[in-house]
């Protein structure tokens, strides 16, 4: 079916856009997969941490916690490095400008990067659940897996916005360092690594200011492991953060356009 769309030569404008979008997604995914620094670290780190800290958990709840937490961590790294670093690099090399000058549908560029990164996040989740169910003591129903996948997919939107902002603000050569420097502590403070109650009190108090914290709560909620606020509140925080970051990215982009000769 997809192949039919990909190979059709005479296309209506709608089909042509779909074709371009599928090609962009296909090659973005291939590009990321072949970039070993990306695929190995995005897929490898969550798995390694799961083997270190998750596999020995005695209770199903603890194993589920690690699956939810590391899936969120995987989503963040997939998007920040795939989108943030990807766009920063392509912009610095002049590649983005060449694509911009082509008839490539504008939104397709960002959407393909988002979808390719989200696909990596889903692979991470699948691998974690597979490990947790087979080698660990986690119980994950199909419905829970589907719900977690849905949360990760929607969660890729704020991370895409953040990645875009990083790509526009950070100097390209420093982007990887900046992402690591910010993301590792933020994911720790958001409860991706260990339950919030094990974190220092001041960090527990500050965490709700982080959008990642709210994503973590939603993911943990799938397994009934998030206490407190209603899910809607978390979604609202994520939605408003996305809007703010996209707006900031847009303003930054327009300003840089006006300056560049």
């Amino acid at each position: 079916m997809i192949q039919a769309v990909l190979t059709a030569e005479a296309r209506t404008p709608g089909a042509a856009r779909l074709h371009a979008a599928l090609m962009e997604l296909k090659y973005e995914f291939i590009r990321l997969m072949r970039t070993r620094a990306y695929s190995l670290s995005v897929l490898g780190f969550p798995l390694m941490f799961y083997l270190l800290f998750g596999i020995g958990q005695r209770s199903s709840a603890a194993a589920q916690y690690v699956i939810a937490g590391y899936s969120c961590f995987g989503l963040g790294s997939a998007c920040l490095f795939g989108i943030g670093l990807g766009i920063a690099f392509e912009r610095a090399q002049g590649w983005l400008e060449l694509k911009w000058a082509s008839p490539m549908p504008r939104l397709v560029y960002l959407a393909a990067k988002m979808a390719a990164s989200a696909t990596f996040a889903l692979i991470v989740m699948g691998l974690l659940i597979g490990l947790g169910v087979t080698a660990g003591r986690a119980h994950v129903s199909l419905a829970q897996a589907a719900e977690l996948a849905g949360i990760l997919l929607v969660g890729s939107i704020p991370f895409t916005a953040l990645g875009l902002l990083v790509a526009l603000i950070a100097p390209p050569k420093a982007a990887a360092g900046i992402i690591n420097l910010v993301y590792i502590p933020v994911s720790f403070a958001s409860g991706f690594w260990m339950p919030m109650r094990m974190l220092p009190h001041w960090l527990q108090a500050a965490a709700p200011a982080l959008p990642t914290y709210h994503l973590g709560r939603l993911a943990l909620g799938v397994f009934g492991l998030a206490s407190g606020k209603h899910a809607l509140e978390h979604w609202l925080v994520l939605a408003s953060c996305s809007v703010l970051m996209f707006a900031a990215a847009w303003i930054t982009f327009v300003r840089s356009e006006a300056k560049s000769p």
């Binding site: 090659y27 590009r31 072949r34 970039t35 392509e90 002049g94 590649w95 400008e97 060449l98």
Partner: peptide, 11 residues
């Protein structure tokens, strides 16, 4: 054809 320093080199 613009002056491009590099393209995604894994394709």
């Amino acid at each position: 054809m613009l002056q491009v320093a590099n393209a995604p080199d894994t394709l």
